[in-house]
Simulated assay, not measured.
Amino acid sequence: MKALKIIGIVVLAIVVIFTIAVLVQPSQAHIEKSIVINAPAASVFPEVSRFKNFTAWSPWSKMDPEVKQTYEGEEGTVGAKMMWDGPKTGKGSQEIESIEENKSVKCALRFDGYDGVFYSAFILEPEGEATKVTWTYDGANGGFGAKAMWLFMGNMMKDQYDQGLMDLKKLVEEKPKPEPVPADSTAVKQ
Protein backbone atom coordinates (compact mmCIF):
# COMPACT_ATOMS: atom_id res chain seq x y z
CA MET A 1 0.00 0.00 0.00
CA LYS A 2 2.83 2.39 0.87
CA ALA A 3 4.53 1.65 -2.46
CA LEU A 4 1.34 2.53 -4.40
CA LYS A 5 1.08 5.82 -2.51
CA ILE A 6 4.69 6.71 -3.39
CA ILE A 7 4.12 5.77 -7.05
CA GLY A 8 0.96 7.90 -7.08
CA ILE A 9 2.81 10.91 -5.62
CA VAL A 10 5.65 10.52 -8.15
CA VAL A 11 3.21 10.28 -11.09
CA LEU A 12 1.28 13.31 -9.83
CA ALA A 13 4.52 15.28 -9.44
CA ILE A 14 5.54 14.40 -13.02
CA VAL A 15 2.14 15.51 -14.35
CA VAL A 16 2.33 18.79 -12.42
CA ILE A 17 5.90 19.49 -13.59
CA PHE A 18 4.96 18.69 -17.20
CA THR A 19 1.87 20.92 -17.01
CA ILE A 20 3.89 23.82 -15.61
CA ALA A 21 6.60 23.33 -18.26
CA VAL A 22 3.95 23.47 -21.00
CA LEU A 23 2.17 26.50 -19.56
CA VAL A 24 5.38 28.57 -19.42
CA GLN A 25 6.10 28.02 -23.13
CA PRO A 26 5.80 31.20 -25.22
CA SER A 27 2.57 31.93 -27.07
CA GLN A 28 4.73 32.88 -30.09
CA ALA A 29 7.39 30.41 -31.19
CA HIS A 30 10.60 31.96 -32.50
CA ILE A 31 13.87 30.52 -33.72
CA GLU A 32 16.74 32.60 -35.04
CA LYS A 33 20.00 30.99 -36.09
CA SER A 34 22.90 32.57 -37.99
CA ILE A 35 26.12 31.56 -39.70
CA VAL A 36 28.78 33.43 -41.67
CA ILE A 37 29.43 32.00 -45.13
CA ASN A 38 32.68 32.89 -46.87
CA ALA A 39 31.01 33.93 -50.11
CA PRO A 40 29.13 36.95 -51.42
CA ALA A 41 25.34 37.15 -51.02
CA ALA A 42 24.95 36.53 -54.77
CA SER A 43 26.41 33.04 -54.24
CA VAL A 44 24.19 32.27 -51.23
CA PHE A 45 20.90 33.74 -52.47
CA PRO A 46 20.06 31.08 -55.13
CA GLU A 47 20.42 28.35 -52.50
CA VAL A 48 17.87 29.94 -50.14
CA SER A 49 15.45 31.38 -52.71
CA ARG A 50 14.94 28.36 -54.99
CA PHE A 51 13.16 25.36 -53.51
CA LYS A 52 14.90 22.85 -55.78
CA ASN A 53 18.24 24.13 -54.44
CA PHE A 54 16.93 24.25 -50.85
CA THR A 55 16.42 20.49 -50.85
CA ALA A 56 20.17 19.93 -51.43
CA TRP A 57 21.05 21.22 -47.95
CA SER A 58 17.76 21.10 -46.05
CA PRO A 59 17.95 19.02 -42.85
CA TRP A 60 14.50 17.59 -43.57
CA SER A 61 15.49 16.20 -46.98
CA LYS A 62 18.22 14.19 -45.25
CA MET A 63 15.91 13.15 -42.41
CA ASP A 64 13.26 11.85 -44.83
CA PRO A 65 14.89 10.60 -48.06
CA GLU A 66 11.56 9.09 -49.18
CA VAL A 67 9.79 12.47 -49.15
CA LYS A 68 8.02 13.38 -52.39
CA GLN A 69 8.30 17.03 -53.38
CA THR A 70 6.39 18.92 -56.04
CA TYR A 71 6.81 22.50 -57.17
CA GLU A 72 4.57 25.24 -58.54
CA GLY A 73 5.34 28.66 -59.95
CA GLU A 74 8.53 30.26 -61.15
CA GLU A 75 11.52 29.40 -58.95
CA GLY A 76 12.83 32.24 -56.81
CA THR A 77 9.77 34.50 -57.20
CA VAL A 78 6.81 35.48 -55.04
CA GLY A 79 4.23 32.71 -55.27
CA ALA A 80 6.73 29.90 -55.95
CA LYS A 81 5.62 26.92 -53.91
CA MET A 82 7.00 23.59 -52.75
CA MET A 83 4.74 20.84 -51.42
CA TRP A 84 6.06 17.80 -49.60
CA ASP A 85 4.67 14.49 -48.44
CA GLY A 86 6.91 12.11 -46.54
CA PRO A 87 6.69 9.32 -43.99
CA LYS A 88 8.83 11.24 -41.46
CA THR A 89 8.26 14.89 -42.39
CA GLY A 90 4.51 14.64 -42.92
CA LYS A 91 2.66 16.71 -45.46
CA GLY A 92 2.78 20.46 -45.99
CA SER A 93 3.77 23.36 -48.20
CA GLN A 94 6.11 26.32 -48.31
CA GLU A 95 5.38 29.40 -50.44
CA ILE A 96 7.49 32.52 -51.05
CA GLU A 97 5.63 35.59 -49.77
CA SER A 98 8.32 38.21 -50.25
CA ILE A 99 11.76 38.29 -51.76
CA GLU A 100 14.50 40.88 -52.14
CA GLU A 101 17.39 39.77 -54.32
CA ASN A 102 20.55 38.98 -52.37
CA LYS A 103 18.93 40.27 -49.16
CA SER A 104 15.93 38.26 -47.96
CA VAL A 105 13.31 35.58 -48.59
CA LYS A 106 10.17 35.10 -46.48
CA CYS A 107 8.04 31.98 -46.80
CA ALA A 108 4.65 30.93 -45.45
CA LEU A 109 4.58 27.36 -44.13
CA ARG A 110 1.49 25.22 -43.80
CA PHE A 111 1.44 21.78 -42.19
CA ASP A 112 -1.43 19.35 -42.73
CA GLY A 113 -3.21 18.75 -39.46
CA TYR A 114 -2.20 22.13 -37.96
CA ASP A 115 -4.21 25.32 -38.10
CA GLY A 116 -2.56 28.56 -38.97
CA VAL A 117 0.35 29.75 -41.00
CA PHE A 118 3.94 29.67 -39.82
CA TYR A 119 6.77 31.74 -41.28
CA SER A 120 10.37 31.13 -42.20
CA ALA A 121 12.81 33.75 -43.46
CA PHE A 122 16.38 34.06 -44.64
CA ILE A 123 18.16 37.37 -44.12
CA LEU A 124 21.48 37.94 -45.88
CA GLU A 125 23.82 40.67 -44.62
CA PRO A 126 27.29 41.52 -45.93
CA GLU A 127 30.08 40.87 -43.48
CA GLY A 128 33.25 42.01 -45.22
CA GLU A 129 33.78 39.63 -48.15
CA ALA A 130 31.46 37.09 -46.49
CA THR A 131 27.69 36.91 -45.89
CA LYS A 132 25.91 36.50 -42.57
CA VAL A 133 22.86 34.28 -43.13
CA THR A 134 20.12 34.38 -40.51
CA TRP A 135 17.35 31.77 -40.71
CA THR A 136 14.22 32.46 -38.67
CA TYR A 137 11.02 30.64 -37.80
CA ASP A 138 7.90 32.24 -36.30
CA GLY A 139 4.50 30.84 -35.44
CA ALA A 140 1.73 30.91 -32.89
CA ASN A 141 1.69 28.44 -30.02
CA GLY A 142 -2.04 28.70 -29.39
CA GLY A 143 -3.39 26.44 -26.68
CA PHE A 144 -2.04 23.71 -24.44
CA GLY A 145 -1.47 21.21 -27.28
CA ALA A 146 0.62 23.61 -29.38
CA LYS A 147 2.70 24.63 -26.37
CA ALA A 148 3.25 20.98 -25.45
CA MET A 149 4.41 20.26 -28.98
CA TRP A 150 6.76 23.27 -28.90
CA LEU A 151 8.23 22.00 -25.61
CA PHE A 152 9.42 18.89 -27.46
CA MET A 153 9.89 20.21 -31.01
CA GLY A 154 11.47 23.62 -30.31
CA ASN A 155 14.94 22.38 -29.37
CA MET A 156 14.89 19.77 -32.12
CA MET A 157 14.07 22.47 -34.68
CA LYS A 158 16.88 24.69 -33.37
CA ASP A 159 19.31 21.80 -33.90
CA GLN A 160 17.91 21.23 -37.40
CA TYR A 161 18.35 24.92 -38.26
CA ASP A 162 21.97 24.77 -37.05
CA GLN A 163 22.62 21.64 -39.13
CA GLY A 164 20.95 23.14 -42.20
CA LEU A 165 23.03 26.31 -41.98
CA MET A 166 26.25 24.29 -41.62
CA ASP A 167 25.31 22.23 -44.69
CA LEU A 168 24.44 25.42 -46.61
CA LYS A 169 27.82 26.92 -45.68
CA LYS A 170 29.64 23.79 -46.84
CA LEU A 171 27.68 23.66 -50.11
CA VAL A 172 28.26 27.33 -50.99
CA GLU A 173 31.91 27.45 -49.92
CA GLU A 174 32.78 24.31 -51.92
CA LYS A 175 31.33 25.68 -55.17
CA PRO A 176 33.81 27.17 -57.63
CA LYS A 177 34.12 30.93 -57.24
CA PRO A 178 33.20 33.04 -60.28
CA GLU A 179 36.09 34.84 -61.88
CA PRO A 180 36.16 38.53 -60.97
CA VAL A 181 35.27 40.87 -63.81
CA PRO A 182 38.04 43.39 -64.51
CA ALA A 183 37.01 46.99 -63.79
CA ASP A 184 37.77 48.08 -67.36
CA SER A 185 35.99 45.15 -69.06
CA THR A 186 33.35 47.45 -70.59
CA ALA A 187 35.92 49.72 -72.19
CA VAL A 188 36.01 49.60 -75.96
CA LYS A 189 39.31 48.24 -77.28
CA GLN A 190 40.90 50.14 -80.11
Results as ranks from 00 to 15, higher is better:
A3G: 12
L4A: 14
L4R: 10
L4H: 11
K5R: 06
K5S: 12
K5D: 09
I6W: 07
I9Y: 13
V11G: 12
V11R: 02
A13Y: 02
A13Q: 05
I14L: 15
I14S: 09
I14V: 14
V15E: 14
V16N: 04
I17P: 00
I17Y: 02
F18L: 15
F18R: 08
I20D: 00
L23F: 07
V24F: 13
Q25K: 05
P26D: 11
S27C: 02
I31P: 13
K33G: 04
S34D: 12
I35M: 14
V36C: 11
N38D: 14
N38M: 07
P40F: 05
A41Q: 07
A42T: 05
S43D: 15
S49M: 10
R50L: 07
F51A: 00
F51G: 01
F51C: 00
N53T: 01
A56Q: 15
W57S: 09
W57P: 10
W60Y: 12
D64S: 05
D64M: 06
Q69A: 07
Y71W: 12
Y71V: 10
E74P: 00
T77H: 02
G79P: 04
K81E: 11
W84R: 01
G86L: 06
K88S: 11
T89H: 03
I96G: 11
I96V: 09
E97K: 13
E97D: 13
S98V: 00
S98L: 00
S98C: 00
I99L: 15
N102Y: 09
N102D: 15
S104W: 00
L109I: 12
G113C: 12
Y114M: 11
Y114I: 06
D115C: 01
D115S: 14
G116V: 12
Y119Q: 06
S120Y: 02
S120R: 11
I123F: 07
L124E: 02
L124T: 01
E125Y: 06
E125V: 05
E125Q: 15
E129Q: 13
K132V: 08
K132N: 14
V133G: 15
V133W: 12
Y137A: 05
G142S: 14
G145N: 13
A148T: 01
A148K: 03
F152V: 11
F152S: 09
M153V: 09
G154Q: 12
M156G: 10
M156Q: 12
D159G: 13
Y161Q: 07
D162L: 03
D162A: 08
G164Q: 11
L165D: 03
L165G: 02
M166V: 08
K169N: 09
K170F: 07
L171W: 03
E174Y: 01
E174S: 15
P176H: 03
K177V: 14
P180C: 04
V181Q: 11
D184V: 04
S185L: 05
S185K: 07
T186N: 13
T186R: 08
A187L: 14
A187W: 15
V188E: 08
V188G: 04
K189Y: 06
